[in-house]
Amino acid sequence: MRRWLVTFVLVSTVLAVVWFGVATVAAQTAGPAPYNSPRTRDGHPDLQGIWQVLNTVAWDVEDHNARLGVPAGHGVVEGGTIPYQPAALAKKQENFQNRATLDPEAKCFLPGIPRMTYMPYPFRIVQQREKITILYEYLGAVRFLYMNGNPHPKGPIEWFMGDSRARWEGNTLVVDVVHFTDQTWLDRSGNFHSEALHVVERYTPTGPNHMLYEVTLEDPKVFTRPWKMSMPLYRRQDANAELLEYECLSYLLEDAWTRPNGLPFN
């Protein structure tokens, strides 16, 4: 009888611990019921349309106060702070001090991934069977996410927008991006990476007009560990929404051409 009682107590305790553990894990991973989005003819979630962020991450991916012309904003970095190596943190601070001239955006260069996604301009997703094309209003840029079975081409290759290979994991479009340059930044505050950057983007529809955009960044030359940012993407609701033009270099040159020493390229 006593042994039965001891066994009962032990088994109950174990069951309770296991149940508690399962419940905790479930609470961490389940969240709200997944959104079952419309499908394309190929049977994948249909992410097509015009999307844009609604945040201040273009200025700074971390929490920031307002400055002249810069709205204050919440950061999107998981844990709040980018895990820079000490030398990289010093470089970030130097970048911030000299951002007016050093920021690649000031030269109208392609901004890289993920920065392109949270520039304050709309972009359009176009799905086909073997590739997804993203058309960005900013610079009229085009990005191809290949799903044709080819792996990343053999490097070394340094591209401003990297090489993107995509796959579906359930409802989520997962994009693996490598082959970057060290000439792009993450925002207008000097946050940066090296050419060793490896990005994994996850686009998950959460409703008819919303997606969750999650990015993991890994760069052994700059960060101490992989880190993550996430933000919602919003479908543009304006009835006349369309991609227009932002031909950055033409405005820069037009402005600078007539000023002595005004050209940023001299």
Binding site: K107, C108, L110, L139, N150, W159, C248, L263, P264, F265
Partner: peptide, 22 residues
């Protein structure tokens, strides 16, 4: 890879040309 379109930049490499024309 022959049917893939790979990065074809222009702004990013044209600075020298622009400076010369100026």
């Amino acid at each position: 890879y022959a049917r893939e379109v790979w990065e074809n930049t222009c702004n990013e490499g044209v600075g020298h040309t622009i400076a010369e024309l100026h």
